[in-house]
Simulated assay, not measured.
Amino acid sequence: MSTGQNDTAHAAGRVWAHVGQAFADPGYDVVVVGAGRMGAACAHFLRQLAPALRLLLLDEGGLPSEDGATILAPGVWSDTDAAPEDRAEARWVREQLRTAFGDVGLEPRPLLTLHAQEEAGTQPTAPLLARFPALPDLIDPGALPWAALDEQALTYRPGAVALSCGQQAVRHGADLMLNARATLVSGGIQVERLTVTNTHQVVTHETHLLRPAQVVVALGAAGPYAAEHDLGVHTAHARAYRQAPRLNVPSSAHTPVLRAAGLTLRPQNGGFTLVPHIHHRDPHGYVPQGGHLTGVPTGLRRETLEDLVALMDAVPVLATEALELGRSLSDVPGAWLALPGGSARGRPLHQHLGGGAWLLLGGPQADVLGLSTAYDLAATLAGVADRPWH
Rank of each mutant, 00 (worst) to 15 (best):
residue 3 T to P: 08
residue 6 N to G: 10
residue 6 N to V: 04
residue 11 A to C: 15
residue 15 V to K: 12
residue 18 H to G: 13
residue 21 Q to G: 08
residue 24 A to C: 09
residue 31 V to E: 05
residue 33 V to F: 03
residue 40 A to L: 10
residue 42 C to W: 00
residue 47 R to C: 11
residue 49 L to N: 09
residue 49 L to P: 02
residue 61 G to C: 01
residue 63 L to E: 06
residue 65 S to K: 04
residue 65 S to Y: 13
residue 75 G to C: 00
residue 79 D to Y: 03
residue 83 A to C: 13
residue 83 A to N: 04
residue 86 D to K: 04
residue 92 W to P: 03
residue 100 A to R: 07
residue 103 D to H: 03
residue 104 V to A: 10
residue 105 G to C: 12
residue 107 E to P: 01
residue 107 E to C: 04
residue 108 P to F: 10
residue 110 P to W: 08
residue 112 L to N: 01
residue 113 T to I: 00
residue 124 P to W: 01
residue 126 A to E: 12
residue 128 L to H: 06
residue 139 I to Q: 08
residue 141 P to A: 02
residue 145 P to R: 00
residue 145 P to N: 00
residue 146 W to Q: 02
residue 146 W to V: 01
residue 150 D to K: 08
residue 155 T to S: 10
residue 158 P to F: 10
residue 164 S to I: 13
residue 166 G to C: 02
residue 173 G to C: 00
residue 177 M to D: 00
residue 185 V to I: 09
residue 195 T to R: 15
residue 199 T to L: 12
residue 203 V to T: 10
residue 209 L to E: 06
residue 210 L to M: 10
residue 213 A to S: 06
residue 214 Q to F: 15
residue 226 A to K: 05
residue 227 A to D: 02
residue 227 A to H: 07
residue 237 H to G: 03
residue 243 Q to K: 04
residue 261 A to I: 00
residue 266 R to W: 12
residue 275 V to Y: 11
residue 275 V to K: 08
residue 282 D to H: 15
residue 282 D to R: 14
residue 296 V to C: 08
residue 298 T to L: 05
residue 299 G to R: 02
residue 300 L to Y: 11
residue 310 A to Y: 05
residue 321 E to Y: 09
residue 321 E to T: 10
residue 330 S to K: 11
residue 372 S to R: 06
residue 376 D to Y: 05
